[in-house]
Amino acid sequence: MSEHVPHDDFGSRLGMWLFLVTEMVLFGGLFIAYSYMRAKYPGEFHQAGEELNVTLGVINTVVLLTSSLTVVLSIVAIQRGEKARSMGLLASTLGLGTVFLVIKSFEWAAKFHHGLYPNSAHLATLPPGEQIFFGLYFTMTGLHGLHVIAGMGVLAWILRMLAKDQVRQDHYIHLENGGLYWHLVDVIWIFLLPLFYLAA
């Protein structure tokens, strides 16, 4: 039914970039909230930042950056017609995404263990700035985590398209767009790392 517009890879990419703009603005709203609150409570943000595990944050950064690299390599592989390699590389992106989520869930679990979560009795005893810090921490890393999951869903779908030759050497726009989305997920994390883990 939708064949009355000509196929247009450039148009598809443009659409994807515009979508990424909306995602950036979505997180932009949170960055505004973060800046507003940090300006209000600089000392307490510093204090609360001490609670986060910088090592795990950095490991996760490396994991996510590597996963972006494997997506790019997967695109290169399909451009060269190497279907098996392309699929393998894309699968490793999914694997790295999973590693990221696992590490993240350990971090969240530790925070919960220490009673550092919104509405907890312990958090209520801390100064307001620290309460806000953790409110923002869970909101922003949580929303980012949802984006990781969504991105993995998209990439898994594209992996299936690769297997079925719906994505192939002469037609790989879906993989390119999926990759763009994954890079966005990556870039947002690059901002989250210094804002929270390196705030101390």
Binding site: V21, T22, L26, F27, A33, P118, G135, L136, F138, T139
Partner: peptide
């Protein structure tokens, strides 16, 4: 539409999170 709408989206999400989890913002 694409530059402004995401802001209301996240704002409304924050209202929901505030009501459900009490993030405090």
């Amino acid at each position: 539409q694409i530059l402004a709408t995401p802001i209301i989206a996240i704002t409304l999400v924050l209202v929901i999170l505030e009501r459900v989890f009490g993030i405090g913002i």
